[in-house]
């Protein structure tokens, strides 16, 4: 029924809108569409109301995704990452990563997400790190081996926390996908979704997951997003008391380990040199990292198991 009247109204909307500037808001579109539909008897006044609501949702972006929905997207994105990379089944190593990572997350601009921040080591020599929406963060063994101290590892985690904080994953979802998902959400009532709506919603969900994983794992975020995540990382490191030079130290080491043309970080991130240049603008000239003995000892003990 829903689909039927929506299909009937779309051509009307198109007609009514033909003379409007391209950037006319969706609110206007739905007002016009609903008005025409009601006037012509295509929709009842009540249905017209519902179309208006759907239209105002369509005008919104990834920001309309609630933290709870972001959490569910993140869980599946995380499961997709682990479908490709095996987790490292080592309690001590994963615990160390979580103590460090969850502590750092507290110093970000977004310390609270729906399900919280959680970290896991991936058992691969690839130099890689992924953050799923909502705070599930995956770091490869190869990446941890690029870190010579806790400050450098903190920098890697802080960069990934930055992607979560800034919701870069959600922004990879295509506009049309977002529109169709939000339209289903806005027109549906509180009752649990029936078969057809659930199927449509699941389709939009699957598409969203693909948009995110292909950006994150194959194409990489834009250089602008990477720069934002580096800048967020510097802020987190400075607030928490770690040396932001850790980020530069890690990138310098990574430069030596990345294989040109590799399918890991080399493919999805701007060159370490260009990132170092940008970070130096934020933290000043590089200085050597001085790690207290206790900090270095616990780092080596944990990294040794990874």
């Amino acid at each position: 029924m829903n689909m039927l009247y929506r299909a009937a109204i779309l051509p009307l909307c198109a007609l009514a809108l033909a003379g409007l500037p391209a950037c006319q808001t969706m609110d206007t579109l739905s007002e016009v569409g609903a008005g025409v539909a009601v006037a012509t008897g295509v929709a009842t006044p009540q249905q017209g109301q519902s179309i208006k609501k759907a239209g105002s949702a369509v005008g919104k972006t990834f920001e309309s995704i609630t933290p709870e929905q972001e959490y569910y997207i993140g869980r599946t994105v995380g499961a997709m990452v682990l479908n490709q990379y095996k987790p490292l089944d080592n309690k001590a190593a994963n615990n160390y990563l979580n103590v460090l990572g969850q502590t750092l997350a507290q110093f970000s601009d977004r310390p609270e997400t729906f399900g919280g921040y959680h970290f896991l080591v991936m058992e691969t020599e690839d130099v890689n790190a992924f953050s799923a929406p909502g705070g599930l963060i995956f770091i490869s063994r190869g990446m941890i081996r690029c870190c010579q101290n806790e400050d450098a590892l903190a920098a890697v985690l802080a960069h990934e926390i930055g992607h979560v904080e800034l919701q870069h994953g959600l922004q990879a979802i295509s506009k049309s996908r977002m529109t169709s998902a939000l339209t289903i959400l806005a027109t549906e009532s509180a009752k649990s979704f029936g078969g057809q709506e659930l199927a449509q919603l699941t389709e939009a969900f699957e598409g969203s997951i693909t948009d995110i994983t292909s950006t994150m794992m194959n194409n990489g975020y834009s250089r602008g997003f990477e720069r934002q995540a580096d800048s967020a990382a510097v802020t987190i490191l400075q607030r928490s008391g770690y040396d932001p030079n850790g980020l530069i130290a890690m990138l310098t080491q990574m430069k030596k380990q990345l294989k040109p043309g590799g399918h890991d970080f080399a493919k999805t991130h701007p060159s370490p040199d260009s990132r170092i240049e940008d970070i130096a603008k934020l933290v000043g000239p590089a200085t050597p990292i001085v790690s207290p003995a206790a900090r270095q000892a616990r780092f080596q003990a944990a990294a040794g198991k990874i």
């Binding site: 709870e68 929905q69 869980r75 659930l198």
Partner: peptide, 12 residues
């Protein structure tokens, strides 16, 4: 619990 929720995850 509206939208992308545990039902959608189960369906996925």
């Amino acid at each position: 619990g509206k939208g992308f929720n545990s039902d959608v995850e189960a369906q996925f």
